[in-house]
């Protein structure tokens, strides 16, 4: 039977099946569902958990033996099978046999990545759908994340203005682990009487991004991410440091553009430029194709004037740096 992750607690109030399959790629829900299941098994009398990893070489015979053999010291057992690589033919046979005749006084928890279509058609999985609880945590879509944040906030005793929840969803980019950590941090200092505002969230955000992530976002031409990171690090970094690295990276891009004009391959460029990784060269080639020599010159000139502005005036340079980044981060040629 299929059990949605959010219904697991409710299901476990009255049931404890002999087998649970927890198959998914979303780490937070995977961890929380497995913890919930373990807690229930401990409450049911398990004193220990037996963990088996299907790492090579995994002895399916021995594992089957372990399941079939009663324990002298435990009247009820929790056995976990961590599937770390595709289940081989022998494993499928053993699992299939087990699903048809699960051991009494034992809960088997199978934990692994989401199954492929072919794996879902395997006999063992079809048999599992009859006797086991199938829990498949899936990532939460960005559009549904604010609602998830508001719901999770309630369990932690904090409420959110919708705008604040949306902003939190945006800065964590759909990563549930990061979102849950941010919520835990907010819960420590939140006032349960008043809903969290956008200002509260920004004030709480600590160093989430690095300047290198900013540069990567700009090089990949992702303008929204570039702006988001820049606005974040503006609270923690000095503009001269950020600008210096941006200008350095633009000059790197210009170098790669020159090599491209000479018709050098990535390997040849890599041989000339020991400090540049192959992946970085490829990324700089891509963004370089969106720029002309003239536009690069303009970017560097702009960087120079911002540098002067920082050193000679008291005007905040961040808006200017943001404009520089917007002009630099491109996906298509001008």
């Amino acid at each position: 039977m299929q059990i949605p992750p959010h219904s697991l607690q409710r299901h476990l109030k009255n049931n404890l099946l002999p087998v649970y399959c927890l198959l998914g790629d979303e780490p937070l829900q995977m961890a929380e569902c497995s913890d919930t299941l373990r807690t229930k098994c401990y409450q049911a009398g398990a004193s220990d958990r037996h963990i088996h990893n299907t790492d090579s070489p995994f002895q399916w015979d021995e594992w089957q033996n372990h399941l079939q053999h009663g324990s002298l010291f435990e009247s009820y057992r929790l056995t976990e099978l961590h599937v770390t690589k595709p289940i081989n033919a022998q494993g499928r046979t053993v699992l299939s046999a087990y699903m048809h005749n699960p051991a009494p006084q034992c809960t088997l928890l199978i934990i692994g990545n989401a199954l492929t279509k072919a794996e879902k058609n395997a006999a063992w999985f079809k048999a599992a759908q009859e006797c086991a609880g199938i829990i498949i945590p899936t990532p939460i879509h960005l559009s549904k994340l604010p609602a998830w944040i508001i719901q999770r906030g309630k369990t932690l005793g904090i409420s959110f203005q919708h705008e604040a929840a949306q902003y939190l969803a945006e800065i964590t980019e759909g990563n549930l682990v990061a979102t849950a950590q941010a919520l835990d941090q907010l819960a420590l200092s939140a006032d349960s009487a008043t809903p969290m505002t956008l200002h509260d969230i920004t004030a709480h955000q600590s160093a989430q991004y690095t300047v290198w992530q900013l540069l990567d976002a700009a090089i990949s031409g992702n303008r929204p991410r570039t702006i988001r990171i820049l606005r974040q690090i503006a609270h923690e970094r000095s503009p001269i440091e950020v600008l210096g690295l941006i200008a350095y990276q633009i000059r790197q891009m210009e170098k790669v553009m020159r090599y491209d004009e000479q018709g050098l391959s990535v390997a040849a460029i890599s041989a000339h430029e020991k400090n540049m990784w192959r992946d970085k060269i490829i990324a700089l080639q891509k963004i370089g194709q969106c720029h002309s020599r003239h536009s690069v010159y303009q970017l560097l000139q702009r960087a120079q004037s911002i540098d002067e502005m920082i050193k000679t005036t008291t005007i905040s340079p961040w808006r200017a740096i943001e404009r520089l980044c917007i002009n630099w981060a491109r996906r298509t040629p001008t």
């Binding site: 079939q68 009663g70 051991a103």
Partner: peptide, 8 residues
């Protein structure tokens, strides 16, 4: 010697 049986 105490031995647990195997479930068949």
């Amino acid at each position: 010697c105490v031995i647990m049986p195997v479930k068949v």
